[in-house]
C-alpha cells in the first residue's frame, strides 16, 4: 500500500467581525486543525473579516476571550499565506498599519522571519480562490 499523503489546497474565507458572532473564533479553530493534517492552507480576510486582525483588541470590557493573539501562531503551523482584500480595507478607512503583522520562520534560511500577509485586489483574490480544491466560508 502506498502511503502517499494527499495534499489539497484549502482556503478559509473570513468575512465577519470578531466578537459579534462566533464565526471568527470557530474558523480559527478549524484552520489550526486542518494545518495539523499537513494540508496547503491559506486564509483570506474580506469584508468585515478584516476587523479580525485589528491591533490593540481589548476584550476585558465585554467579558469575552481575546483570541487576536492566536493569529500570530499561524506561522508556527506552517500557514504562510494570508490574503487581505485591499478594497475591504479601503471602504472601512483602514490600512495594513491598522492590522497586526503576521510572519512565518523559514527553516531553509536560518529561521529568518518572513511576512505572511499579502494585500490583494478583488480580481487577484478571485484568481487565487479559483485555484483552490476546498473553500470554506466563515
Amino acid at each position: 500500500m502506498s502511503e502517499d499523503v494527499i495534499t489539497k489546497k484549502f482556503m478559509y474565507v473570513n468575512r465577519k467581525s470578531p466578537y459579534g458572532t462566533i464565526y471568527a473564533l470557530e474558523a480559527l479553530e478549524v484552520v489550526l486543525i486542518t494545518a495539523a493534517f499537513d494540508q496547503d492552507v491559506s486564509l483570506t480576510f474580506i469584508d468585515d473579516g478584516v476587523y479580525q486582525l485589528m491591533k490593540d483588541q481589548k476584550t476585558e470590557g465585554i467579558g469575552m476571550k481575546n483570541f487576536s493573539s492566536t493569529y500570530s501562531a499561524l506561522g508556527d503551523y506552517e500557514i504562510k499565506k494570508i490574503f487581505i482584500d485591499k478594497e475591504s480595507l479601503e471602504e472601512r478607512g483602514l490600512s495594513l498599519s491598522d492590522l497586526q503583522e503576521l510572519v512565518w520562520e523559514d527553516e531553509d534560511e536560518d529561521y529568518v522571519e518572513k511576512n505572511s500577509i499579502n494585500l490583494v485586489s478583488r480580481s487577484e483574490l478571485s484568481e487565487i480562490m479559483n485555484k483552490q480544491d476546498v473553500v470554506l466560508s466563515f
Binding site: 470578531p18 476587523y51 490593540d56 483588541q57 481589548k58 476585558e60 470590557g61 465585554i62 487576536s68
Partner: peptide, 14 residues
Amino acid sequence: LKPDLDARGLSLNN
C-alpha cells in the same frame, strides 16, 4: 458603547 469599540481595536480617536 466603549467596551465594544475597545474589543474590536477601534480607536476612540477615529
